[in-house]
Simulated scan of single mutants.
Amino acid sequence: MTGLHLGAADTDTSADYDGDRIDPAEIVRLAVDGIEAGKPEVVADKWSAHVKASLAEDPSAFYHPASAVG
C-alpha cells in the first residue's frame, strides 16, 4: 500500500483555488513510480513536503496567534 500526499491538483474542483496546483498527470506519474518502487508514501508537491517536514515541530506553529484561546 502507498499513501499519496498532495496539496492541490489542477482540476475543475480546485478551479477557484488561488495557489499552486500540481498537474494531475504529474500526480499519477509520481504515484505509479512510488507504487512500483514499493514506497510507503509519495509526497507529490512542495506544500505537502513542507507539511510533512513540519509534523515533528511544535504544532502551535500552524496556528495564528490571534486564534489562540486564553
Rank of each mutant, 00 (worst) to 15 (best):
P24Q: 11
I27W: 04
D16Y: 00
E57K: 06
D10T: 09
D23P: 06
V51Q: 03
A37T: 03
P24R: 13
R21T: 10
A37Y: 01
S54I: 00
R29Q: 07
E57L: 07
T2L: 14
P24N: 05
S60A: 13
H64M: 11
G70C: 13
L55E: 06
D10K: 13
T13A: 12
E57Y: 02
A49T: 04
A66E: 12
D45W: 05
G3I: 13
S60E: 12
S48Q: 02
D20T: 12
T2Q: 10
V42C: 05
S60Y: 04
I35M: 04
S67Q: 15
D33M: 10
V42Q: 04
E57A: 04
L4W: 09
A8K: 14
D58P: 03
A25G: 05
S67D: 15
D58S: 07
G34K: 10
A25D: 14
V42T: 12
D33E: 15
A15I: 15
P59C: 02
P59F: 04
D20L: 13
D20K: 10
S48W: 01
S67E: 15
S54E: 03
G3S: 08
D23K: 08
A37V: 01
F62R: 11
S67G: 15
T2K: 11
V69G: 03
L55I: 00
P24M: 10
D12P: 12
V69N: 11
D58C: 06
K46M: 11
D45G: 11
A15G: 09
P59H: 03
D12M: 09
I35L: 09
I35N: 00
G70E: 15
G3F: 12
W47S: 08
K39D: 11
S48A: 14
D12R: 08
S67F: 14
A37S: 10
G38T: 05
A56H: 05
Y17K: 06
A8H: 07
S48T: 13
A37H: 06
A56V: 10
E41P: 01
S14P: 03
D20S: 12
I35E: 01
E57Q: 08
A31N: 01
P40G: 03
L30N: 03
A9P: 06
A66Q: 11
D58H: 01
K52Q: 07
I27A: 02
V42H: 05
S48K: 02
K52D: 05
V28W: 02
Y63Q: 12
L30F: 00
S67N: 15
V69D: 10
G70K: 15
A15Q: 14
A9Y: 00
K46S: 11
L4T: 09
A25C: 04
I27S: 00
S67V: 15
I35A: 06
G19K: 05
P65D: 07
L30C: 01
S14C: 03
H64S: 11
V51N: 00
P59M: 04
L4P: 14
A37R: 12
D18G: 02
H5G: 08
G3C: 14
L55D: 03
G7P: 12
W47A: 09
E26L: 14
P59T: 03
H64T: 06
P65M: 07
D45Y: 03
W47H: 09
T11R: 14
E41H: 08
A8G: 01
V32K: 13
L4K: 14
